[in-house]
Design a protein around this nucleic acid. Structure first.
Lengths: 123, 123
DNA sequence: GTATGAACATCATGTTCATGA
DNA sequence: TCATGAACATGATGTTCATAC
């Protein structure tokens, strides 16, 4: 009875797309959720894409569940009581494999759109 | 109270994407639903995208509701009882405007993915 | 069996609320 | 107030069923 619903393979899903960026951010610094969200927003705002915080958290939690990252608590500043959750790579191999998969999906999606651009320009 | 939910602006939705192709098909021939589905499947199968029939019908019905196309009945073949629904452009201006919008959305989505490809290649 | 369409189910994701420090 | 997270609501889309030829 495993009804995994089969995707039609149209374009990459936002969740997966975001995961690729999160892994990269986590690899290069010790960011926390909102920080990564702001970074993503800044990055894609000129292209009309503004992700929301729930989607970032859902992506982070999935990466945790998949054993790809781990998390720890930290104070936002020395003299602050505000706690933040920072992330570390837990399984570099898995992380790399997932990024590879995401890159493939991005390229495939890109081809779909490129094909459409060509098609529409003919008319 | 009309809360139209605001899109985050990630990538173009499949429904809208399909509409662009349907309009083009309808402009150039007198196709019926399944025929257009088969055409689309053939076209995108090499890229791993296989739309399903429900999505095509939903797109066609929306085009009808929007007054962009009209439909008529016809026999599949002379000596057949099988009825098919064929489509005609009803409002060429609206059709053109929608295609323009779709082309813009496709190009924007394409830029989002292109940005990602660049980003991922850096690591 | 083929074409159309609706109904149903579930996934993907946006919005709102809750909680802790 | 800020960061995190859950809950909730709905939009998008895949699967199944129904109907007419």
């Amino acid at each position: 009875m495993s009804h995994t619903r089969k995707s039609s393979g149209f374009l990459i899903k936002q969740r997966l797309f975001i995961k690729g960026y999160l892994i990269t951010y986590i690899e290069t610094s010790r960011p926390y959720g909102i920080q990564m969200l702001d970074e993503l927003k800044q990055h894609f705002k000129p292209l009309g894409y503004t992700p929301n915080h729930a989607e970032i958290y859902r992506a982070l939690h999935e990466l945790l569940d998949e054993g790809i990252v781990r998390s720890g608590q930290k104070k936002l500043t020395e003299d602050s009581y505000q706690e933040i959750t920072i992330y570390y790579i837990r399984d570099a191999e898995k992380a790399h494999a997932l990024k590879q998969h995401i890159a493939d999906e991005v390229r495939r999606s890109h081809k779909v759109l490129l094909r459409a651009i060509e098609d529409f320009d003919l008319h």
